[in-house]
Nucleic acid binder design. Structure first.
Length: 315
DNA sequence: AACTTTGCCAACCGCGGTGAT
DNA sequence: CATCACCGCGGTTGGCAAAGT
């Protein structure tokens, strides 16, 4: 039987065909017009009244994830990625809740992003995507990297990228926050201290210089406005966000000076690179997990290796 | 060029919460 | 209070396209 059509027998009523699978243009039009006149909600009733041979659920999903006028299309911007990372660290797989803070983005889209991009990295590192270690990697490497990239794009071509063509409100808010944070961080010349998880592992692989991103209790990234439990439009209010994850209680210093974003394409490792042969054991990530134009790869092989190593030292 | 693998995303499914009866 | 229907959420799957071999 075709997967696009299933016969459903209703004990009380006539047998009718219930469509499944991809929506047709005609169905979309029907749904759009019906909602335009009658509004959304009461999905089962809506499906019947609109003459759609779909379940209410299906209609709701189609509307919310695809047809709704304010749905945003295209790659997630750096800001959006940052938001997702941040909010996920806060709320976990509460996709709907997270989506409320990304106007025009659906929970489905965010969920897909997480599964295809983020969890993929965890798989390749052979660590649990919800493990402390991976969360640390996200916070200590990925988010600072996004921040730096944001900093670069906002200063070099503030009006050119799609990142600035969408999410204008959040963009200006986050960008300014990011800038402040970056300035703050970069002005710090404190003694370098490696992240806990990187502490005793191949320290020579990460050359530290005087410019470091410094995350301390008092100035944790703060890239994001305080996100309320009940989001209000247009955008979240601004205030400092303190990370309360226990594993972040330590002060993390992440050297970003060694992360050459422009040349950061994790091209196939050269044999004479700085990397241990044992890297091959680690099934390192390929070079394009955030591979659209504006969000080049943010992982460095060295860093991945640090996090990809088996749990040790009581982390 | 043909085949296989991988990535992506739309859509479906099952479950739990909630309100109406 | 119990039951039912509906709704929303999160997990999972299927199918298509691109990339790789």
């Amino acid at each position: 039987m075709s997967t696009a059509m299933r016969t459903v027998t209703n004990s009380n009523e006539e047998e009718f065909e219930l469509r499944r699978g991809p929506w047709t243009l005609e169905e979309d039009t029907l749904l759009i017009h019906y909602i335009a006149f009658h509004g959304e909600g009461r999905w089962n009733l809506l499906a019947k009244c609109a003459g759609l041979k779909r379940t209410g659920k299906s209609c709701r999903l189609r509307w919310l994830n695809y047809l709704k006028p304010d749905i945003k299309r295209g790659n997630l911007t750096l800001q959006e990625q940052l938001l997702i990372l941040e909010l996920h660290s806060k709320w976990g797989n509460r996709w709907s809740k997270i989506a409320q803070h990304l106007p025009g983005r659906t929970d489905n889209e965010i969920k897909n992003y997480w599964r295809t991009r983020v969890q993929k990295q965890a798989r390749q590192l052979k660590i649990e995507s919800n493990s402390k270690r991976f969360l640390e990697a996200i916070r200590c490497i990925w988010m600072p990297r996004l921040l730096e990239k944001l900093e670069q794009t906002s200063s070099s071509s503030p009006f050119s990228s799609s990142a600035t063509s969408t999410m204008e409100t959040q963009n200006s808010t986050i960008t300014s926050l990011v800038k402040n944070q970056a300035d703050l961080a970069l002005s710090s010349s404190q003694e370098t201290k490696l992240m806990d998880s990187c502490n005793h592992q191949n320290e020579n692989l990460i050359s530290m210089t005087s410019s470091n991103v410094c995350f301390t209790d008092s100035m944790r990234i703060s890239i994001l406005p305080e996100i309320s439990e009940h989001p209000t439009s247009p955008g979240p209010a601004i205030s400092n966000t303190a990370y309360n994850n226990s594993f972040l209680n330590d002060c993390y210093y992440v050297d970003i000076s060694t992360y050459d974003m422009e040349g950061f394409n994790l091209a196939p490792m050269s044999a004479e690179g700085t990397h241990d042969n044992s890297l091959s054991d680690c099934q390192m990530a390929e070079n394009n997990w955030i591979n659209d134009d504006e969000s080049s790869t943010l992982w460095e092989m060295d860093e991945l290796w640090q996090f990809g190593k088996p749990e040790e030292e009581g982390i």
